[in-house]
Design a protein around this nucleic acid. Sequence first.
DNA 1: ATCGGACTCGACAGGGTGTTGACTGGGGTC
DNA 2: GACCCCAGTCAACACCCTGTCGAGTCCGAT
Lengths: 223, 223
Amino acid sequence: MSPARTPTGAAPSRGRRAGRSAGDDREVAILATAERLLRERAFGDISIDDLARGAGISRPTFYFYFPSKDAVLLTLLDRVTEEADAAAGDVLDRLAEDPRARWRELIARFHATFGGHRDVVLACAQVRGTNAEVRRLWAEVLERWVRAVQAAIELERARGAAPDGLPARDLAIALNSMNERVWYATFAGDGPAVAERDVVDVLLDVWLTAIYRTTAPPVTPRG
Amino acid sequence: MSPARTPTGAAPSRGRRAGRSAGDDREVAILATAERLLRERAFGDISIDDLARGAGISRPTFYFYFPSKDAVLLTLLDRVTEEADAAAGDVLDRLAEDPRARWRELIARFHATFGGHRDVVLACAQVRGTNAEVRRLWAEVLERWVRAVQAAIELERARGAAPDGLPARDLAIALNSMNERVWYATFAGDGPAVAERDVVDVLLDVWLTAIYRTTAPPVTPRG
DNA sequence: ATCGGACTCGACAGGGTGTTGACTGGGGTC
DNA sequence: GACCCCAGTCAACACCCTGTCGAGTCCGAT
């Protein structure tokens, strides 16, 4: 699938290879051009020539740096997913302190992380239908969020804060799916959407009622 | 946008025009070919030539019947949306009889309608990113479902069966968005998904807790 | 000096879309 | 019967975009 590009650095790169050299500037320039163009038009309306020209190189030279247009987007997506993974952080480990505030923080971070890269994320959503690699990468990110939420729900049930009910994994999938779709509609302005200002609170409300059957889950006092 | 095709019939057609003629067979053949090919590969991997050949005509002749490949998909989508609109039916008018059963019926119908045309719906989801017309049409379907659910929630609140809370419209958007995304993941086998067997019950549980704060909403006895 | 790898691009092949212009065949009209 | 119009048909063309090939430059290491 990906060409033999001999990455010598530790981090797997979707571009050429790691290790400093003149070409790095070009690689960065291509990425920057992609981000800039994504701000003004859809991914499908950007040709490889546009990317190459924007980076000051010819089209064949583009292929020296990336195997395809999609690979550029994937590189951009890699950054976002890293950030997204970090965003969850340890929020859910401190749930007992103040569940409502912690859950809210989680949802707000999801919202902020993707909102900070909306052009890239929206573009990925567009090509997800046609690009298996984007689909896979996205599925992995979602899977990590689902697992974290699932674990948190199970912990809340174990400490008696949340009642039993749906399998925690199914509930985690449903809630994360809701967030993803609502988020998308809000930012893409595509169909019925919740106002950007309200979206975190709306989602939070559904999360809390689904998990606790109330919007004011019990706090376990520090002991 | 759409070519001057002089539709003479009542129903707006995305194909040529209404009124019987030899060409109708071809139009139907193109549609049937599209459905068949969609069952075996992605929309993006189907060329206009494939569609034309499948219908026994040449590529230029295809353009006599449809202005583009997307128009074929749109025609297929029209049928599904009609069915989807009918599916909601009057279920929500009879909520007081047995809310849990009625909501379940609504979700099950949503599931059954789209599941019955999964290839078309999945293809539409794929091109939604690149085709504004598909996006618009889909948004309209969703909007109608959202409105119906919103009205039902407001009625339930008015009769005291459901507590006040989020604006009914926001809640309706969030719940329908969840259904859409969960449905998609389940049928596309794309990332974390709920098993097809369980999906209706999982969604129902979240709907009921979000709307009623309990999974067993009160029944109003007929009087 | 010369070798090899990083880097570059002109030119080409291939596949897709959408359009043009010429052609056919049959149903009405005088 | 001569005619015409129009639905229907397609070979050929113009384009655009992707991806590849091969020939070339530049530069640091040997």
